[in-house]
Amino acid sequence: MAADETQQTEAGVMAVDNHWSLAEMTGDTAWLDQMLMPEYRSVNNDGTAHAKAAIVAGAAKRKGTSLDKAKLDWATYQKEHPFGSAVVVHGNTAIVSFYDPALGPQRGVKSSDVFIYVDGHWHALYSQHTAVHA
């Protein structure tokens, strides 16, 4: 059974982060629009920042992709690009970090998502992606 996305827990925020991946892959722009804060920014490893509108527009190009196909594509991605995850929840703030399992969470962080808990739901505020070098 999947964790309840409204829980103010590690499991709740991870459920939202997992839903986020599937929402982008299926073009679920309505869900993304409510989950991403208006000020949301995603910063690539080259320093380029992308606003919420760019993330939602990118997802819109995949609108109509079936959930079954998205889950299969996500499982394939995870197999081809293994990663570990670490979650820290402090009050109404959570940080979800993804890392290279060979390097671990101290040396191999690939990306982190910052969430805030508002009105019973987790919302993404910021993401940072990095290049990892062994």
Rank of each mutant, 00 (worst) to 15 (best):
A11Y: 08
A102F: 05
A51E: 11
K52P: 08
T9R: 06
A60E: 12
V43Q: 05
T130N: 14
M37F: 03
A134G: 15
A30R: 03
D46M: 08
K71L: 13
A131D: 13
V109D: 06
Q78T: 06
A134Q: 07
A23N: 02
H50D: 07
T26P: 07
V88D: 11
A53R: 00
P101Y: 05
V96I: 14
A60V: 08
I95L: 13
Y117P: 01
W31H: 05
W74Q: 12
W31C: 05
G64Q: 09
Q78R: 11
G84L: 07
E80F: 00
F83V: 00
N44R: 11
V132A: 12
R62D: 11
D17T: 08
A131C: 00
V132L: 13
H133F: 10
I55K: 01
E5V: 09
T93N: 06
G47M: 13
S111M: 12
Q34W: 00
V88Y: 00
R62A: 11
H90G: 08
G27Y: 09
D73E: 15
G84P: 04
D4V: 02
W122I: 02
Y117W: 15
K61H: 10
D73I: 05
L67M: 09
H121D: 14
G104E: 11
A131I: 04
V109H: 06
D119S: 12
L67G: 00
E39V: 07
P82M: 03
M1D: 13
K52T: 04
Y77D: 15
M25K: 07
